[in-house]
Structures are given as C-alpha cells and as structure tokens.
C-alpha cells in the first residue's frame, strides 16, 4: 500500500547546509535508497547521492538514517512507522562534498599506510599451501565491503577529529589483524598496530560491530585479538622475558612514514 513519507534530508555543500523537508511516495517493499531516488527524480533533481549496486555489496550508499549509520539500499522503509519523520544526513565523520556525498579519502590514506602482505621470500611460485582452518579467521574480515560505516560511527574520530592522524579506525585495524593472523604472512605488525595505527585508542565499545552491514564481529574477532597480541609484544613482562631467554627474533614491518 503506497503512502507519503515525511523526509528531512540534509542539503548543502562543504559543511554548510540544513535539513530540508520533503514528502515522498513510498511503495511496498521499497528501501530508503529507492525513496531518495524518487525524491531526486521528482522534487530535488540536484540531490547528490552516492550509490551503485543497490544490493548491499558495494558499500557506496552509506548515510545516517534517523541518526543511525546505515546503508540506504539495505534499510527497508517497512521498519519505520508510516507517520514517522525520517531524518537522512551524510556520514558525520567525513567532510561533506555535497548533500549526502562525503569525502572518504581519509580511509584510502589509511589503507595505503598498511604494510602489504609479506610472505616468506623463500616460498616459490606453486609452493604456497594453506589449510582452511588457518585462513578462515581472516576470511571473515574479507567480507568487508568498505562502506566505512564502522569508521563513521567510531567515537574516537567521530567525536574527536583531532585523533584522525593517530587512529586508523576499526576497518583498518581489522586489516592489520587480518594480516597478523594470516598463516603465510611473516611480518610482525603488533608494534605498528599500537604505535602507528592507534589500536590503544579503541575502547572496545563495539559500535563498529553494531553497524557493520556484513555482520563482521569486528571487535570480538579482530580488535580484541589484536589487542591481546599487542599486549604479548609490548606489555607482558613474562612474554618479554621468555623472548629474551629464547632470543626470539621479531620481523617487524617498516614503520609508517611520517609517524615517527
């Protein structure tokens, strides 16, 4: 049954803007992105909106709907009351380019800083073997669609913009964890996780896990295990002593340029 939904959409560019009221038709089975497209087609032709797959796989249509970070294409209109006003705003953590489109280049900069996969140089092509049990932990993290909702919701940078240079955010700490747990990766990333990517800033309040549209257990399976690994390298005196006695060599990755 079609009805008219009341929308308040943030309109503006480069930070300056305001919430504008609209009334848009909604049909059964539609999602928020459909409504925004109808709004764009009928009333606000200049509404800027990033989208691509409409299937929750490209991570483009990240936005905040009634204050909650969500994908527009995966948020059914049926979860809202018909008389409820829907407030739709861009992701707050990133600079606005226009309307609902934000500049997420912060994430690409952080991604580039992570030392890449470092297998044993002695392994020749064709010799690379892994067992499923060894890689399945990392495979959960590969489900990430890079919508950056976790980065957006993380209060470390959302409420404290000044922490952005020091803190990589849950998505990229998860990438560090993925490589750290990879059976064929020889590098030790524990120092850079703490010192260069700011793992210590995370206070494990699990908002990243709450908003992840892929259902990845970011906090429990990536961030906390990585924290425990960092403790083993940097803060546990018994592990340190054991390492000294056995003369354990750590293959630290190069530090991130500009961080030291």
């Amino acid at each position: 049954m079609a009805y008219m939904a009341n929308l308040r959409v943030w309109r503006g560019d480069h930070g300056e803007g305001k919430l504008v009221d609209y009334s848009v038709e909604v049909n059964e089975g539609e999602v928020v992105l459909d409504i925004l497209h109808r709004l764009q087609a009928t009333q606000a032709n200049d509404l800027a909106l990033r989208w691509n797959c409409k299937a929750g796989k490209c991570g483009s249509c990240s936005m905040e709907i009634n204050g909650r970070p969500r994908l527009g294409c995966m948020t059914r209109m049926s979860i809202f009351d018909q008389d409820q006003v829907l407030t739709i705003t861009p992701m707050r953590t990133f600079p606005v380019i226009r309307d609902l489109v934000t500049d997420v280049s912060f994430n690409y900069e952080k991604a580039r800083q992570i030392p890449s996969f470092s297998p044993d140089p002695a392994t020749k092509p064709g010799e690379f073997r892994m067992q499923q049990v060894d890689v399945q932990r990392s495979q959960e993290f590969r489900k990430c669609i890079e919508c950056y909702l976790c980065q957006n919701v993380c209060h470390v940078i959302r409420d404290h913009e000044e922490n952005m240079p020091a803190y990589a955010g849950p998505r990229f700490l998860m990438r560090v964890a993925e490589l750290e747990m990879h059976p064929a990766d020889m590098a030790d990333r524990r120092n850079i996780a703490q010192d260069d990517f700011g793992l210590g800033y995370c206070n494990i309040t699990k908002c990243c896990t709450e908003v992840c549209p892929e259902g990845i257990h970011i906090t429990d399976n990536a961030l906390i295990p990585l924290k425990e690994r960092v403790v083993g390298r940097k803060y546990d005196p018994l592990v340190w002593l054991g390492g000294k006695i056995t003369r354990k060599q750590h293959r630290d990755t190069p530090r991130v340029p500009g961080k030291h």
């Binding site: 905040e64 204050g67 909650r68 970070p69 707050r92 919701v153 209060h155 470390v156 959302r158 409420d159 404290h160 000044e162 922490n163 020091a166 703490q194 700011g198 793992l199 210590g200 800033y201 995370c202 206070n203 309040t205 908002c207 709450e210 908003v211």
Partner: peptide, 17 residues
C-alpha cells in the same frame, strides 16, 4: 560513548593508549 552515534561529552579522548 553512551550509545553508538551519540556524541560523547568529553573534550579530549586518548582511550587506552
């Protein structure tokens, strides 16, 4: 924060670093 996407009241934050 008190809840996700709710602004926290503190001016500075360093967490467990």
């Amino acid at each position: 924060p008190a809840a996700c996407a709710v602004a926290e009241p503190h001016a500075r934050y360093r967490g467990e670093s």
